[in-house]
Simulated scan of single mutants.
Amino acid sequence: MSQILLFHHALGLTDGVRALAERIEAGGHTVHLPDLYQGTTFATVEEGVAHLQQVGMDEIVSRGIAATAEYRQASVLAGISMGVCPAFKAAQTVPAFRACIAMSAALPLNAYAPLWMPHVALQVHLASEDPWVKDEDLPLALSYAASAEEPDNPADLFEYDTAGHLFMDSSTDDYDEALTDLMVQRIHELLR
């Protein structure tokens, strides 16, 4: 079974992120939850984004990379929204990982290195009507999912019919249990 590093979104390490980790663990996996905000959580996206801007994305990514050294047994990365940045950085620069799961965000495949690591499978989960992703992230993810040529290293994109950016976080108003069930099922399929 897989050991997974799951990086939280801009609201912090919420109860909803912890619940998502438990649902993934129900498939027999272990999910580690590095706290990139060092204990702070926020009730609104505006507050969380303001904190992110104060801390800086470079620092958040550095904290994520430090977590990969702490959890050396992990072979899968996952990130939700803001957490996709450290997940992508580690997937592109740390050879130990076999898969990267991006939820509610997508980055260029060369965001942190000239090429995507060929041995790292990529799975992307985006809400098709999410105003945070539909104009940039979704077209980007469509382009690299369509161009995945290696059958052993697919870039799989899954779209969900919702505008809820954090549809997988049960502690937010965006939460959709049925869509989260489907997403977790797809994550379990990848991990198998």
Rank of each mutant, 00 (worst) to 15 (best):
P34D: 06
V120L: 02
G16L: 03
D156S: 12
L179I: 13
D135P: 10
L6M: 06
L11V: 03
F167I: 00
L20V: 00
I4T: 09
S143T: 05
S2L: 04
E46V: 11
M82P: 02
Y37D: 02
V94N: 12
A127W: 04
M117E: 07
D137M: 12
A141C: 08
A163G: 11
E70S: 09
I4C: 05
R186E: 02
I4G: 03
E159H: 05
D173S: 13
H29G: 05
V124L: 01
V55S: 08
Q92F: 02
G28K: 01
N153H: 09
V49E: 14
H51W: 10
H119S: 04
D15Y: 07
V17G: 11
L109F: 04
G28R: 00
K89W: 04
L52S: 05
R98C: 13
A105E: 11
A78T: 01
A19G: 08
L52D: 06
T93Y: 06
E47Q: 08
T14M: 06
E177V: 14
L179P: 00
E47L: 06
H188D: 07
F42Y: 01
Q38W: 09
L122Q: 13
I187Q: 12
F158Q: 01
T172A: 06
A127L: 08
M57T: 13
D152L: 13
F167Q: 06
R72V: 15
T40K: 14
F97T: 04
P34T: 00
A19I: 02
V84Y: 14
D15H: 04
A148E: 05
E25K: 15
V76M: 07
L6S: 00
I65H: 10
E149L: 15
P118S: 03
G39T: 12
E22H: 14
L157Y: 08
Q185V: 14
A113L: 11
G79W: 10
T30F: 02
E136T: 06
L6A: 01
S62G: 12
M57G: 11
Y175L: 02
P118C: 04
Q73K: 02
L166D: 09
L182P: 06
Y71M: 04
A78C: 04
G12R: 00
A106W: 03
A87H: 15
L20S: 06
V17P: 11
Q3A: 00
H165I: 05
V45R: 09
P131W: 12
L126Q: 00
R192C: 13
G12Q: 00
N110Q: 11
I187E: 14
A145C: 09
P95D: 13
A163V: 07
P151K: 03
L182N: 10
Y71E: 02
P139R: 01
T172Q: 12
P139S: 10
M183P: 01
A106P: 04
Q38L: 13
V76E: 00
I101C: 01
L115N: 12
A10P: 08
H8Y: 11
C100W: 15
G48K: 00
L122M: 14
R192K: 09
E47D: 11
D169N: 11
A43Q: 10
L109H: 14
S75Q: 08
R186N: 02
D152Q: 11
C100D: 12
A10G: 09
M168T: 05
M1N: 03
E25Y: 09
Q123D: 10
D156N: 12
